[in-house]
Design a protein around this nucleic acid. Structure first.
Lengths: 193, 193
DNA sequence: AACTATTGCAACCTCGAGTTGCGTTAGGCG
DNA sequence: CGCCTAACGCAACTCGAGGTTGCAATAGTT
């Protein structure tokens, strides 16, 4: 029965444990207002060690979220606009249903997390705009200059249902939302709808 | 120079002062996480007096919000569906821009405030559904059985822009949202759009 | 004027954030 | 192998905010 868990881990191992524990606690509590002691216990690390790395609890949470979001954002490419938006809308639902996603969406207080959330959406809107641009290149619709706004219109109903109403975004809601956005795109021959 | 502010007010006067101070602090801080000492100071009342009325800070906040929301919900009645929805959408924008409204929308943690917010929306959706029902009676559109869902579709984009993106919901966004909802209503002759 | 409920006040408890000093350990290096 | 040092554990501390308690002061009532 050898000690599988060394009593004094170091460097990267501790770093990883702390970040992982932070994300775990956030997910469990559903909030970014976590207790440092909880994180310390979960990471099998002393509170002091955490404070040696991060000046405050807020900084720790911020670092954990950034670490988690570092895993790029894969955009769908199914060949059709409907296929892409369908996949996108499912990704959005999954992200908002996830405890960490929920926590990020509900972060408030005007702190750095609010700023982070804004950049989160801006970044994704920018990337998702390409889906519409590609559709235009394929001739599925005429080019638009407000693609980001149309992605926003795609996300808003799903976000409202899940986050604000704490309800479920079933497939019919997703489909209806995709339909609506596609119908509002100008057709390739120049006529609107 | 008589004492205009008696040093020991009583009963209703203290009640009102506490509720008002609570709402004021919430509006200033933009959060429901307020300091009882702040409320006490602002109300010109001792902390003990507050705890004699409310068991916890959360209960106080809840009472204050309920008191504030007690002022009924006037629904527009302009004679046309577009006029009604236009007015409604402006009311929504005003409510979400207001500090108290923002705070309520961002309340989280699974507490009673979440529940309160859900009832807040359910209540308003129910009332606003009448706007569409009345439009159907006037022959502006065919009757629908999912009026509440259509009101939700009206609110979601405005909410997302203001609360989630911390942006401005300008008149063009409001108009576009109203247009969209009206266009999706089945026309009176039975054909859709 | 006396009585009672309400309020003010000061002191206290609890809990979590964040800090400090020191002892202990891991791991590199001669 | 033994030493040296940076990283970690540990216990005790400060500090601010939530919440409590006992008692004195005050307002309204009779």
């Amino acid at each position: 029965m050898t000690a599988t868990q060394p009593s004094h881990r170091r460097g990267q191992a501790v770093d990883a444990a702390i970040i992982e524990a932070t994300l775990g606690v956030v997910a469990e509590q559903g909030t970014f207002q976590i207790r440092i002691d909880d994180v310390a216990e979960r990471a099998g690390v002393n509170k002091t060690t955490i404070y040696r790395r991060y000046d405050s609890a807020e900084e720790l949470v911020l670092a954990a979220v950034l670490h988690n979001a570092a895993a790029g954002i894969p955009m769908p490419d199914t060949g059709t606009l409907r296929g892409d938006l369908d996949a996108l809308v499912r990704m959005v639902r999954a992200a908002l249903t996830d405890p960490l996603g929920r926590a990020l969406m509900q972060a408030s207080g005007g702190g750095p997390l609010d700023e982070l959330r804004r950049r989160y959406w801006a970044e994704r809107f920018e990337l998702a705009s390409e889906l519409i641009d590609r559709a235009a290149e394929r001739g599925e619709c005429a080019p638009v200059d407000d693609a980001a706004a149309r992605i926003e219109a795609l996300v808003a109903p799903i976000h409202f249902r899940i986050i604000q109403l704490a309800g479920v975004a079933d497939d019919s809601l997703l489909a209806a939302t995709v339909d609506r956005v596609i119908e509002e795109l100008p057709s390739d021959d120049g006529s609107d709808r």
